[in-house]
């Protein structure tokens, strides 16, 4: 089966974020493959190992996103497509979905795997938008994916457990971090990734025009922060103090 995994380069979760003058999140700092996408790549690789086929990474981002893509290639993905175009800086979710859909259509995959949401944007909107634009059913929040011929079966996380959801391929699956523990790239994998293809395409190659962004940022303020209250060392009497606080909150 042919599997496309969408991947994104994001600021390193372990680094401190900073803002640009226009209030967009700075992309100039340490960047990594989105940790959620690593799980998506891992699941793609496991399905390929079980059922054969090809894993193609599709990404949108600046040219330096190739570093993050190489990470996925070194894990074992076969090749990659990077849509890069100066006009796409600051693209919103719908534009991102349109661009990815156009690039993915050229691949004609049986399965598209996305992370549930990106680490930096956290809108969680690209998977359903992408499914709609591709004309695919969406099997979302998957913590387990099974393939039986042209039938997909996923365990979809819900508030109190999970649902078993089935659909025929082609389909889009969004996966949670619970899906699979991402493998470490082996030295051999890292060497092999250097010669794997990263096809770079622009907006005009895809025939996509960038629309007006859905939202414009009017201002950014510090989030309301709670003030620190009382901090006590437990000297054996802390429990009494907690009980007092519970009582004054009228929960006991």
């Amino acid at each position: 089966m042919k599997i496309v995994v969408t991947v994104k380069q994001v600021p390193d979760p372990n680094s401190t974020l900073s803002l640009e003058a226009d209030n967009s999140i700075s992309r100039e700092k340490e960047v990594v493959l989105d940790p959620g996408d690593e799980c998506g790549v891992e699941e793609g690789l496991q399905l390929k190992e079980a059922h054969g086929g090809e894993v193609v990474l599709v990404s949108m981002g600046p040219e330096r996103a190739k570093d993050a893509i190489r990470k996925g290639l070194s894990m074992g993905a076969d090749r990659a497509v990077l849509v890069t175009d100066p006009a796409l800086a600051g693209a919103d979710a719908l534009t991102t979905a349109k661009v990815l859909a156009a690039a993915i259509k050229q691949e004609q995959p049986d399965l598209v795997i996305c992370a549930t949401e990106s680490y930096d944007g956290s809108t969680g909107m690209v998977p359903p938008m992408l499914a709609e634009l591709l004309g695919f059913p969406q099997l979302t929040f998957a913590k387990k994916v099974e393939v039986d011929g042209s039938t997909l079966k996923v365990h979809r996380q819900t508030a109190d457990g999970y649902q078993i959801v089935e659909a025929a391929t082609p389909a889009l699956v969004s996966v949670t971090a619970a899906i699979a523990e991402p493998r470490y790239a082996s030295l051999k994998g890292i060497m092999a990734a250097r010669s794997k293809e990263i096809k770079q395409v622009g907006l005009s190659d895809l025939g996509v025009e960038k629309g007006e962004p859905a939202e414009s940022i009017e201002g950014v303020t510090d989030a309301e922060s709670r003030k620190a209250g009382e901090v006590i060392e437990d000297d054996g009497r802390a429990v009494d103090r907690i009980v007092q606080v519970l009582a004054s909150a009228k929960v006991i």
Binding site: D92, A97, M125, P127, P128, E132, G211, A214
Partner: peptide
């Protein structure tokens, strides 16, 4: 989880963006 999937598909179908 359930509502955002409908919202995403609807926005893409109507060709408008959204704020999430």
């Amino acid at each position: 989880p359930d509502s955002r999937e409908v919202a995403g598909r609807l926005a893409a179908r109507l060709g408008v963006g959204l704020i999430s």
